[in-house]
Design a protein around this nucleic acid. Structure first.
Lengths: 217, 217
DNA sequence: ACCTGAACACCGTTCAAGT
DNA sequence: ACCTGAACACCGTTCAAGT
């Protein structure tokens, strides 16, 4: 094969290929070599666009965060809590569509451009609502920790090779797991099987978000 | 070399070796082969005690969670908020001592025996405080999400090969990073540099924990 | 049951060389 | 500047065989 410029390659193309592999074949299948073969290029061509493999994966995470539109946050026609609900639920949905990628979420600092944008728009809203600059900054971090933490914990239970099954099915799976908890050793855990199983529900996610918002006001 | 039983090996010995490598040489240096050579055994001997590599790493995480004593949670002589503070701060300290291991925290479900024990003791306390069974279950999950989420996000910025530097130093590093944020694009983020830098402080951790606790009561 | 040697099918990354 | 081929120093895991 002849070398020479192809111009078919770019950072975006590489990120897209990595995400596709992550979704279709899971985290273990994503290698520099598999990404390269997916885009039809030699493995080391990747290094023209990224310094190393982890940089590619970080770009994948930032891409997913950027997929969530933040426009609602600025929509003063909607009550502010509801705006946060909408963005929080949207982010969760988008991330859970890519369980393989979501597992990488909290392994690296959230310092990508899309993550910064997310924080900035949250600060806008919190300032509008009347929080001081300092409280707004602290609150935005708390909200991000809550959202990403619960989404990551939720994604950890999903098969990275498959799109997430419907919520009911996921709760059933968890219920079975908790029914195996020995009641003599963990009486309260065993007694709350139903609630434990529903930890990963949309309802519990919103409940937690509301408790955090209650704590802020 | 002769094969034959050695009896020097056990799951615990393997976990200890893995944690040592994680601390001294970082996540990339932890391989089945390096663990095996650390304990003086052939690589495939590991598979007598664990089904695969990720099982070893999960056991490392559960070991660290188990290191935090939960006795304070049951000490009715201390105000309940303070009990949660103590356990939360203790867990944070213990995990941040092992940044390499902490990065693995939210990549797998929290279903180890020590994690279950943690949840159960939290349920005890929340029931004592007067929460209904359902609210207690939801609240314990919220608290765990908050603690693990902020600890993981904090650990993501640390060099896995080194013990965490003192807090002041870590805040200085972050401040420098945030001073590079362009104020035209992210005005609020840039204006709050000082608070953003302090996201990883003990004080912000406790502040967030208190907001969550406020939301619960 | 517990361990070994050898092998299989891979990795991430570097380097010199081609256009 | 952008890409290739070839190589280096590794991986996780399996399998048959020894005690």
């Amino acid at each position: 094969m002849k070398p020479g410029p192809k111009r078919s390659l770019s950072g975006d193309v590489i990120v897209t290929a990595a995400l596709k592999l992550l979704d279709e074949r899971g985290g273990d299948a994503v290698s520099v070599r598999s990404i390269a073969s997916e885009v039809g290029v030699a493995p080391n061509a990747i290094y023209t666009y990224f310094p190393d493999k982890v940089a590619v994966l970080r770009a994948v995470v930032d891409r997913l965060i950027g997929e969530q539109s933040l426009d609602v946050l600025a929509d003063t026609g909607i009550p502010w809590r509801q705006r946060i609900h909408e963005v929080g639920l949207g982010l969760r949905k988008r991330l859970l569509d890519h369980p393989g990628a979501t597992k990488l979420l909290l392994g690296a600092p959230m310092d990508g451009p899309r993550a910064l944008e997310f924080g900035e728009r949250l600060l806008d809203l919190l300032a509008e609502v009347g929080l001081s600059q300092e409280d707004a900054a602290r609150a935005s971090y708390l909200l991000i920790v809550y959202m990403l933490g619960s989404i990551a914990l939720e994604a950890a239970e999903l098969d990275p090779k498959m799109p997430a099954p419907p919520e009911k099915e996921r709760i059933n799976t968890r219920r079975k797991a908790f029914e195996a908890v020995p009641p003599q050793v963990f009486p309260r855990t065993a007694a709350s099987t139903e609630v434990m199983a529903a930890y990963i529900s949309t309802e519990q996610y919103v409940w937690g978000l509301d408790r955090v918002l209650d704590g802020l006001s």
